[in-house]
Nucleic acid binder design. Structure first.
Length: 312
DNA sequence: GTGATTTGACCGCT
DNA sequence: AGCGGTCAAATCAC
């Protein structure tokens, strides 16, 4: 539901197309594995390989009936904007907006990095009952200048504190691409994660770093690492929008895809404690995207409910 | 000085 | 009534 899903009319992905997409994605995975090696050897051949991967991804996306532009279809997100609950004339300079509550998430994932290509600004942190870790609240830094209403909630994964459960709300309506032109693609498979409450396959998209930025990253982690970057999370948690399986991303937007994850996983922002180390630092993935954008895991069978959009 | 984070308080929803 | 989400002043880093 939420976000673009609405816009993405094409929900039902034909089995054959899905299968073809899977094959393509598997090829990409293999290519990614090769890329990893090439990168380790500092070879320039990686660009060529990436191009090939992109081609495959494009095919896969087409096969999956990517809704393409849904991204801009804001409002469809189901986000309930704060309603001016009566300009409280009376009182302090406090707000008066009534907060949503029923705001639906556009997807939740567990990741070992908080970098998703977007620049977020933290606006709150709260201890959550029955949870050992506080929850941090972020909104797009372009909320003020571009009115972007995208938000996300970050909480350390209970099962593995080194990972984070990130829930997104709303869509990015900003043009936050200067430093992150390439959409991030996450292809993961938790099929082997024994537990029955894990989704079998995941394919998500989001912005990520530009090739230049990628080049600056300190390291690249093996694609296989992906499989371990998902905590035990129920399918429902991960696919809050599973009712609208779709992929919304123009294939030609895929400017860069890199394997693995070199994101720093500072938790400075999560646990607070130090004064704002904001501007231009690596503080908790807020202002300097630092993780590579393409993760690949083993693929199993992909079903309709295994796809969801990750706000591009 | 500017801008991001911290943190306590406020407020709506369940 | 309690919890969770957000606001906004204070604080901090650059």
């Amino acid at each position: 539901m939420c976000m673009a899903s609405s816009g993405g009319a094409g929900r039902d992905v034909p089995a054959e197309k899905a299968a073809a997409a899977v094959n393509d994605l598997i090829e990409v995975r293999e290519g990614a594995a090769r890329l990893k090696i090439l990168l380790q050897e500092q070879s320039s051949e990686w660009t060529e390989l990436i191009d090939d991967m992109l081609g495959k991804l494009s095919s896969a996306l087409s096969a999956l009936d990517t809704g393409g532009a849904a991204a801009g279809a804001s409002s469809a997100d189901g986000v309930i904007r704060p309603t001016a609950a009566g300009e409280s004339s009376g009182g302090r300079t406090r707000r008066r907006i009534s907060y949503r509550r029923s705001q639906r998430s556009s997807g939740k994932r567990v990741t070992d990095t908080l970098v998703d290509g977007h620049v977020w600004r933290k606006y709150g942190q709260k201890e959550i009952q029955n949870s050992p870790h506080p929850r941090s609240y972020y909104r797009c830094t372009h909320k003020s200048d571009q009115g972007c209403n995208a938000k996300r909630q970050v909480q350390a994964c209970e099962a593995d504190p080194s990972k984070y459960a990130v829930t997104y709300y709303g869509e990015h309506t900003c043009s936050d691409y200067p430093s992150s032109t390439a959409p991030m693609i996450i292809v993961a498979a938790a099929a082997d994660e024994d537990d029955d409450n894990l989704a079998n396959n995941l394919v998500s998209f989001a912005q990520t770093l530009s090739p230049h930025q990628l080049a600056k990253e300190e390291g690249v982690v093996a694609a296989s690492r992906m499989s371990s970057s998902w905590c035990t999370t129920s399918a429902d948690d991960v696919f809050s929008s599973s009712a609208d399986p779709f992929v919304q991303l123009a294939a030609d937007e895929l400017a860069a895809v890199v394997v693995g994850s070199a994101g720093r996983t500072s938790d400075a922002g999560l646990h607070g404690g130090g004064g704002g180390t904001a501007a231009g630092t690596d503080s908790f993935a807020t202002s300097s995207p630092s993780s590579l954008g393409f993760r690949v895991g083993s693929l199993g069978t992909i079903g309709d409910d295994d796809f969801f959009l990750f706000d591009p």
